[in-house]
Write a protein that binds this DNA or RNA. Structure first.
Lengths: 164, 164
DNA sequence: CCCAAATCGGTGACATGTCAACCAACCCGT
DNA sequence: ACGGGTTGGTTGACATGTCACCGATTTGGG
């Protein structure tokens, strides 16, 4: 950890800007979404993922992996969503341990009516403020960063180092 | 809310990439920071802000504004940091209501020893993966988005509409 | 076939963040 | 100097997320 390379002015500007944007954008999108629909962003994300499957049904483990959520978090959150009538849990026939989330009609209705407004907010506060070139750059480098993290993640996941 | 303009393929790629990056990057940076130093990211941010003042002392309201934290959140968090001996609270002489956060020696030591590693992690997982042009683009559009949000925020803050 | 190990999901304790309510001190027009 | 309105900060109740652990089931090697 010797002679750290600090961030230069442009890097610092980018990093601070990123952090600040992340915080403010999150707050605003969550605020608008909740006010308009009563859904939180996690609610929205869950409903969105489940509604994109043909059946409106999804295995918990798959959902957790897609969202990069811990199983514990998903389980807690689904319990709350279930109490509000947005989803139900069903048994998995092919695996006795498994569970399946399914949208209720109310859940389907909630995501359908929330989506247009949410997309509009994303446009208004982010996408439409970027030039096409910036949109492409954002798509490019975020995926690069994610791939890199997924690579180093593997080192931390419950896998053994190759034996000697 | 009629005829929503959905995100096209590139916009969708950028938006999904951003969300995924945000989540994974947060997790990884927090994980490394906590493992190396025992500090959480919020801890780090608070210590970082306070340590950048000449005295290592800062008015609570100023700190809250700079960090875009609610006063409540800040108060709760400082209470926890205080219990761990990282900061202390002092009275403000010029304003009887006010409080001041001050770094303890332990707090100073914590941020000093945490900073190099944290910056290195930010480089390794983000900055060094971007081209210089991408760094500049990130700096540019994040600030644009923040300014836009700050502008619309004003409409929601506790201010009156101009009276008739 | 059998048993150890891994996987799936759930639970309880705890850390963190939000929201609304509150008190004390300040401000300021009268 | 008074008193209403505002501000600074704290608090408690509650929502959310994390962590460690558990019980049930599946899997895979001998």
């Amino acid at each position: 950890m010797d002679a750290p390379r600090w961030l230069d002015a442009r890097e610092d500007r980018a990093w601070r800007g990123y952090r600040r944007m992340r915080r403010l954008l999150d707050l605003e999108l969550a605020r608008e979404l909740t006010q308009a629909t009563g859904l939180s962003e996690p609610d929205y994300d869950v409903l969105s993922e489940v509604s994109e499957t043909p059946q409106g049904r999804l295995r918990l483990s798959e959902l957790a992996d897609q969202m990069r959520w811990s199983r514990s978090r998903l389980s807690h959150h689904l319990t709350r969503m279930q109490q509000r009538g947005l989803v139900t849990r069903e048994e998995c026939e092919t695996d006795g341990r498994g569970s399946i989330v399914a949208l209720t009609p109310a859940g389907r209705q909630a995501i359908d009516s929330a989506a247009p407004g949410h997309v509009a907010a994303v446009r208004r506060h982010l996408i439409d403020l970027l030039t096409p070139a910036e949109v492409d750059a954002l798509g490019a480098f975020t995926h690069r960063v994610v791939d890199h993290l997924a690579g180093s993640d593997r080192r931390h996941s419950p896998q053994r180092e190759p034996e000697v």
